[in-house]
Design a protein around this nucleic acid. Structure first.
Length: 152
DNA sequence: GCCAACGTTGGC
DNA sequence: GCCAACGTTGGC
């Protein structure tokens, strides 16, 4: 089993939205590296840190699981969607996604500040300057440290 | 295939 | 709202 982190702006889709819905297709990813992680890396049952970006206190707010294999993101074919991609054809879809299932909310937000301050997390891509990836792998080592931070 | 211009992300 | 960092596009 692998570990991941997925970013979402809470104004657009928050951990509470996911809790309400239960399962949600993670649409709108339009970055090739992020797509490749979903398409080639993720397997049903993998664990995901749910991260809130572009908000007062950016940080990890809960845990979700991968709930499906990768399949084409329907929004790329919809001219009315803001994620529409006119260059993508059904025979050869450019953008893939996975379904994401709510597991639990953290008792508190593990903030980006906190993670940056941790020497043990210095190698985590998330805390590196200028990282804009919205889907990224998390090392087991870092996963475990963050779970301890939640309880601290 | 280089690189300037442009667009987007996301912390602050 | 600003802007640094980065990805993508398109002219050449």
């Amino acid at each position: 089993m692998k570990y991941w982190l997925m970013k979402s702006e809470p104004d657009a889709f928050s951990i509470d939205d996911l809790e309400r819905k239960g399962v949600e297709p993670w649409d709108g990813v339009r970055n090739y590296q992020a797509r490749n992680f979903m398409r080639d890396g993720m397997k049903p049952g993998d664990k995901i840190f749910f991260y809130h970006s572009n908000t007062d206190v950016p940080g990890i707010v809960g845990i979700a699981t991968v709930a499906s294999p990768a399949y084409p993101d329907e929004s790329q074919f919809n001219p009315k969607s803001k994620y529409y991609d006119e260059k993508s054809k059904r025979e050869e879809p450019r953008w893939m996604l996975v379904d994401v299932k709510f597991e639990r909310k953290f008792k508190r937000t593990v903030s980006l500040d906190e993670m940056k301050a941790r020497e043990e997390l210095a190698d985590m891509p998330l805390v590196r300057k200028g990282n804009r990836l919205s889907v990224m792998p998390v090392a087991k080592h870092d996963w475990d440290i963050i779970l301890k931070l939640e309880k601290a």
